[in-house]
């Protein structure tokens, strides 16, 4: 069983929901990334989504855009992201890792090379924001052969036909975008999300995580009963950059990850 399947099976058995933090690799510094990943797990994260920096992150709001810019200023490449994953795996064999990014850096490396290197580094899933199902058949085949789940976005505006098309390619879990907007937006509508999730669940048994617009324990707790997991990105990154750069890497990681502990207890309550 894959790490992702194992985590979702265990959560379901215990009646809990997945807490999925998102950070950008190398932001605010490459030295902070692996300690932060471990700290997020310690404070209650079940799965980690690791952003692969890109020069043109078209679907991101301002907070995550700046995270990509800082990572690129630190000269973080896809190769380096895989090295950080390798380092993380030395002391954590269980927490699933999902890389989230844009198609061009992966295309430039080549899907086969990426899949082989990512699998040996210990990556469990890939979410390519700008890779629609129409273009994804071959990449999905290559990723799956390497044991990597291809994870897709679903939007509030996805039609039934598209939902069917996407679930036919997806594995691991589905990432349902909670609103019409970019990451970190503030216009979350719980009722609309609930209706959307019900319509998606008619076509698939895959776990569904919800993201975009989850800021704190309150918003996470409102969404968690509707789905199998919640993703927290912008709010965590805001917390991270607000930490004092003079503090040690461990202190900064602990301060930022405290948000994850807060959300953990809110969704478990």
């Amino acid at each position: 069983m894959s790490r992702l399947a194992a985590v979702f099976a265990k959560l379901e058995k215990n009646g809990r929901k997945a807490l999925v933090p998102y950070i950008v690799a190398g932001d605010p510094s490459p030295a902070l990334t692996v300690p932060l990943m471990h700290e997020l797990v310690r404070q209650g994260a079940d799965i980690l989504e690791i952003g692969v920096p890109f020069s043109d992150p078209m679907a991101e709001g301002p907070v995550i855009q700046l995270a990509h810019e800082r990572a690129l200023a630190n000269k973080v490449t896809l190769t380096m992201v895989l090295e950080l994953v390798t380092e993380f795996r030395k002391s954590d064999q269980d927490t699933p890792l999902v890389l989230m990014g844009y198609a061009n850096p992966i295309e430039r490396m080549g899907y086969q090379v990426f899949a082989d290197r990512a699998a040996s580094a210990g990556v469990d899933g890939l979410l390519t924001v700008d890779m629609p199902p129409e273009e994804a058949e071959q990449p999905t085949r290559i990723l799956r052969a390497a044991g990597i789940d291809n994870i897709f976005l679903l939007a509030p505006t996805s039609s039934e036909d598209r939902i069917k098309k996407i679930v036919s390619l997806a594995s691991g879990y589905l990432y349902c975008v909670s609103l019409n907007g970019v990451t970190g937006a503030g216009n979350l509508d719980i009722k609309a999300v609930s209706e959307k999730l019900a319509s998606i669940k008619r076509f698939t048994d895959l776990p569904i995580t919800v993201g975009f617009g989850i800021k704190d324990g309150v918003s996470a707790a409102a969404l968690a009963p509707l789905c199998e997991g919640v993703v927290v990105g912008s709010a965590l990154i805001e917390r991270l950059v607000a930490t004092d750069a003079d503090k040690t890497v461990e202190q900064r990681a602990a301060l930022a990850a405290a948000l994850i502990a807060e959300i953990r207890s809110a969704i478990d309550a």
């Binding site: 078209m58 700008d130 629609p132 129409e134 939007a155 505006t157 996805s158 975008v177 019409n180 907007g181």
Partner: peptide
């Protein structure tokens, strides 16, 4: 029909934009 010129073109966007393009 899917917006390609040979291997070029296409519609490489986030799912959130597909509705508007359709």
């Amino acid at each position: 029909a899917s917006g390609h010129f040979g291997i070029y073109g296409g519609r490489f966007v986030s799912e959130t934009l597909v509705f508007a393009l359709d």
